[in-house]
Each structure stands twice: as C-alpha cells, then as structure tokens.
Amino acid sequence: MIKRTLGFLAIIMLLTLVSSCKKDVLPKPTSQLRLDYPVAKYASFSNHCPFEFEMNEDAIIKEDKDCGFSIHYPKMKATIYLTYKMVNNDINTLLRDAQKLTYEHVIKADDILEQPYLNNDKKVYGMFYQVDGNAATNAQFYATDSIKHFVTGSVYFYAKPKFDSIMPAASYVKNDMQRLLETIKWK
C-alpha cells in the first residue's frame, strides 16, 4: 500500500510540475489613450471687428484687445491665438514679422511646410505653415488684403510638445485653422 501511495504521489507531483511549466510572464506594454473627436461643425463668427470667419462650434472664443481672439479647445488643452493689425504702409514689416515668428520654431521643428493661400474674389492672401516635430506650435498662418488688414493665427497646446502624443489633437485643430483662414472675409 505504501508503494501504491508513493507511486500515486509521484504521478501527482509529476503532473503538477508539468502543468505549472508555462512560458515566462511578460509585462503588458503601456497602452496609449485613443483620442476620438467629434466631426467638426462650423459656424460664422462676426462682431464689431473688421473681419469675420468660420470657427468650430465646439470651441470657445474670447475677444482680447484690438480685435485679437483666443479660441479655446478645452478637451484638447489647445488655443488658437488670432491677432489683427491695420496695415499702415508697413505690409513688408508685417509679413517679415509673421514669417520670422514661424521660423523661430525651426530649432525644434523637423520640417516646416508652406501652403500659399490666394482668394482673389474675397481679396484674402496669405500663407499657412504646418510645423512638424516637437515645436511649441504645429500650425500658423497669416492673411491680408495687402492694403488695410493683417491677421495672424497660431495654435499652442498646454502640454509638453511631444508630437506623437498630441498628433490627433494637433491634426484636428490644424484643420480648424485652415478652415478659419479659408473663410476670412473683410468687412
């Protein structure tokens, strides 16, 4: 009976050892947050300032001084800043300053793509800049009629600029900025 019990225990121990041998346990990789944003709906924005434009209905707009605006995206921790200046025979200076502001990001940027914008019917001319890489801003633009009006816009995120992390939000806001530029009308 002792031999039978020892044999039975040996079989149980052997089965336990065989069944407990599994592959090494590996830690799960860290997951990334999936960011889905609603389809943008645009509405016209107009007030006493000498220009109007379309903006995302989900954004919150706040007027700053001298017809400047802050368009806030709370879910994305982003803000589009618009500034307005009158052209007083200084269009070359305004253009140079707008371009200089964009190219100050060249230190951190991987690439800066320039997209000219021309709308002869509305007399709106400008440039849209897409800044790729870990720069403080990933999109900027300027628009002018070359005679009276000059508007600049740039987006900033309230997060450390890691382009891979903010790319979905950056792409969403960049599309809103392009829409804003393409819908500017002078009054």
Rank of each mutant, 00 (worst) to 15 (best):
K77N: 11
S31W: 06
M86W: 08
D121H: 07
E63I: 10
Y129H: 09
S154A: 14
A159T: 09
Y129Q: 10
V131G: 02
Q99V: 01
N134F: 10
V131N: 03
E54G: 01
K62T: 05
D132L: 15
F128T: 02
N138K: 10
P161I: 00
T137P: 08
V87R: 01
F150I: 05
Y81T: 08
E114V: 01
I107E: 03
E63F: 13
T93S: 09
V39R: 05
T93W: 01
F128D: 11
V87E: 03
D132G: 12
P38D: 00
L33D: 03
N88E: 14
V106S: 11
A159D: 07
S31F: 13
F157P: 08
A98H: 00
A139Y: 08
N88L: 08
A109W: 08
A109Y: 07
N138M: 12
L95Y: 01
K75W: 06
D111N: 09
A136Q: 15
Y37T: 00
M86A: 15
A43V: 00
G126P: 15
A159L: 09
Y125I: 11
K85L: 14
Y117V: 00
Y129C: 12
L113S: 08
N120L: 03
F51P: 10
V155T: 04
E63Q: 15
M127Q: 02
Q130F: 06
K75F: 05
L33I: 05
C49I: 00
V155M: 12
F51I: 04
N119C: 05
F128N: 06
D132P: 00
E54S: 08
A135R: 04
P38A: 02
K162H: 14
Q140L: 10
K123D: 13
Y156A: 04
A109Q: 02
M55Y: 03
L82D: 10
Q99K: 02
C67E: 13
I60T: 02
L113R: 04
L113P: 15
V87K: 03
N89R: 10
K41Q: 08
F128Y: 06
Q140S: 12
N56Q: 03
I80R: 12
T93E: 10
E54N: 10
D58T: 05
N120K: 06
A78Q: 05
F45I: 03
R96V: 08
N134R: 14
N56A: 07
N56M: 05
K148L: 11
D36L: 09
A109T: 01
R96F: 13
